[in-house]
Amino acid sequence: MRTAVLLGFRLRQEVLEWSGAWWFLMTLVVQAVVAPLIGLFVWSAVYPDDPAIARYYVAVILVTLMTESFEQHTFSERIYNGTLSHELLRPQPVAVGVIGMNLAIRAWLTLLGAPIVLLTGIALQVGFDWWAVARSTPYLVLAAVLVFLWTFLLSLTAFWTDRVHAVVGFGSQLVFLFGGTAAPIGLLPDGLRRVAEVLPFYGMSGLPAEIAAGTRGDGSLGYQLVWVVVLVGVVMVLWRAGVRRYTAVGS
């Protein structure tokens, strides 16, 4: 209960904090929507008669905006500049601050990116089945959790290396390739598709987008949940090792 109150307050704080950087947030919105827009243009040209392609990519844009994570910029920087020490000395889990900031940035990106999604949808005359959109909500929530865990996991490497941006950049490329942004995974060659369906990246973006677009009737929440459990486990192990290292050598 106390953690929930603290998280709520932190979220409010971070929303306020980021309200002063709307121009910077706009650049993040642009960065987030560029890759799915390219996918949209390419695959719409390949399948001009399939309205599901446009619907799918509009959903991918929205999922991307709502699940973006930047822990390599926020959390890792705290390791590099030593201000993680402030967080370690607060009587609350460090994750409260990290999650609070993550949710605040996502809220702003969704708000600022909504006009882009809307305009794209109108321009391409995309129509959604709102029941399918409602059904995609739990998949979207788990996708948001997965993206956060994945980015946070890679950002924890800042305890050992000062090249965290390269590490997270590599991780983002995997999400781009196997998550359904470069191509809907149904369009990938058979072997790659099977690999993509097992890896966690499809659950971070393509799966909720396919359900919202109505191109897939049901999906496996279990597949996402298994990956949530796996990533939480790995994050916890890495977090403990990282803090042990940080508290052994300092900042």
Partner: peptide
Amino acid sequence: GGSQELTVMDSLEYQRLLY
């Protein structure tokens, strides 16, 4: 430490909750 955009009073209020 913490959020630099916040006012001093907001930050103190957060400390109240935290502690």
